[in-house]
Amino acid sequence: MLALATLASIVGVAIVYAIDWFPTQASTTSNDVDVLYDVLLFVSIPIFVGVMTVVVYSVMRFRARPGDMGDGEPIHGSARLELIWVIVPFVIVSVLSVYAWIVLDEQEEPRANEMVVRVTGQQFAWHFAYPDASGKTVRTDDLVLPEHRPVKFDITAEDVIHSFWVPAFRMKMDAVPGLTTSFRVTPNRQGNYSIVCTELCGLGHATMRQSLKVVPESEFAAWLEKKRGAGAANVSAGPSTTSTGVRSQ
């Protein structure tokens, strides 16, 4: 039985490891999350497969013969076994909690040279504001981030709750009216990534998607400069209707 369960677990773990679960990684902490998830798979597949094996094995082994009206052995319990299956799960979840906590702390660690970007959710689009060196803000409807530069998003909402999710960063945070929430990432891979609103916010929730661009530092500086030039036009930018339809992934 034990051998069977081990074998099945190995097969199970092999299968789930063969699956490509996550979208691209584009931040320094995305890999930590994916590794954590792999560890979870490694722990939980044997638990599931083990339960499954005992059920299937018992059914095949202890199935009543036709006409067998007898009873099983009246075993009422076993203090030792019961203690084991209190302690083992307890240890597993404790270890996992500590591990998760460590990864969380790593994700939320403030970093030097941090750039703050203000994100505002509105039915049904995202708006962004970059503070620039002179203390003015540059408002845009598209999000461009320099590679390798830590960024902190300060997130809020105008009307109802939205949620600012960048799957490639493995990060998400609700945009709450009347509250500023935040998360930190350091993008480390150039490219286009999607921004998805994941909190039901009304009619346009499904299409409240935009994309962000991670570019080299120099390109970013040029872009920001250009936006500042266009500043006057952009400062009053109301809800944008152009970017709501963007769908990418």
Partner: peptide, 24 residues
């Protein structure tokens, strides 16, 4: 996560109930 512990007790006890039973 701690809720896994009492829930686990239930799952494992059912499995142990099956063990050496006469299963219909």
């Amino acid at each position: 996560m701690l809720i896994a512990v009492p829930t686990g007790i239930k799952i494992f006890s059912w499995l142990a109930t099956l063990w050496r039973g006469v299963i219909h």
